[in-house]
């Protein structure tokens, strides 16, 4: 598909000694213990790990939605807040988070407005068509299926041509068949366009199929227990994909058993 770039060239993302605590005193929760991560410019990285390990919190800190308790985040030398002000970020959430009183068109157009970009009716129509929703421009979110709503959410992300795209389990709430279809149809819209993308997912298969790199976290407090590069040829080589899935699963299991041993010392005996 020869298409105009849906995104702008992305920056490298560096997180240094990043930590996040919630609450204080007796209720203190150490969501992210000091963690240093870096993500290459223009790559897509999938973050996988057990529920509650803090991967979503990392994503939200990179988005500038949570303030780190310690450490630093730089996106091409800029803070998340700088990126926010330039309209350079986009994020998709687990639920589509569409405003129910706006039509599909209205929800997509809103992102341009929020990002201080001039209105562009043609671009809005174009991206709605690209995510496969032609004919539904005037529909309200309540009239759409779960999969269609996620398509709108992705269109809303891409309409601002973000330099950094953050996906927090974007397809986690739709059924398996829909998910497979969305995974086939939507990622090409931003892949190979130079954006830096991070995706939190629970599906190892999805991570391997979509990302250039899979980062595996242990249980909270998260450590990186696997850092697996996905070669480009894996996209077409299902045997290689299967092997990579095994590799990620092994890392996950390692992180999990470390954690179990840590939590229940007797279990190791």
């Amino acid at each position: 598909m020869a298409s105009p770039a849906m995104t702008r060239t992305g920056p490298e993302i560096r997180c240094t000694d990043l930590a996040k605590n919630f609450g204080k005193g007796a209720t203190l929760l150490e969501a992210v213990a000091p963690l240093s991560l870096s993500f290459a410019a223009g790559q897509m990285t999938a973050l996988v790990g057990p529920s509650g390990c803090g991967k979503s919190t990392v994503l939200r800190m990179i988005a500038g939605l949570e303030q780190p308790s310690a450490g630093q985040i730089l996106l091409g030398g800029q803070t998340p807040q700088d990126m926010q002000r330039q309209g350079a970020l986009a994020m998709a959430f687990q639920d589509a988070s569409l405003l129910p009183w706006r039509s599909v068109r209205g929800n997509v157009a809103l992102a341009r407005k929020l990002a201080r970009l001039p209105g562009d009716t043609a671009a809005v129509e174009d991206i709605i068509a690209r995510v496969g929703l032609s004919g539904f421009e005037d529909a309200r979110p309540a009239e759409l299926s779960g999969g269609m709503r996620q398509r709108v959410a992705i269109a809303r992300c891409l309409i601002t041509q973000p330099r950094v795209l953050l996906l927090d389990e974007p397809f986690g709430a739709v059924d398996e068949l829909t998910r497979a279809r969305l995974n086939l149809e939507l990622p090409p819209l931003w892949q190979a366009s130079g954006t830096t993308a991070l995706m939190v997912t629970h599906s190892v298969r999805e991570a391997v199929a979509l990302a250039d790199r899979v980062l595996v976290f242990s249980s909270r407090p998260a450590r990186v227990v696997g850092d697996i590069a996905i070669p480009a040829e894996a996209r077409s080589d299902t045997a290689l994909q299967g092997a990579l899935v095994e590799q990620v699963n092994a890392a996950l299991a390692q992180g999990w058993s470390d954690h179990a041993a840590h939590a229940q010392p007797w279990a190791a005996q």
């Binding site: 500038g64 939605l65 986009a90 994020m91 959430f93 639920d95 988070s97 929020l114 990002a115």
Partner: peptide, 14 residues
């Protein structure tokens, strides 16, 4: 309103 609606607005520095 769900928290993610507020996140969406803040994401663009608003």
């Amino acid at each position: 309103a769900p928290a993610s609606w507020f996140d969406l607005i803040r994401l663009y520095g608003r």
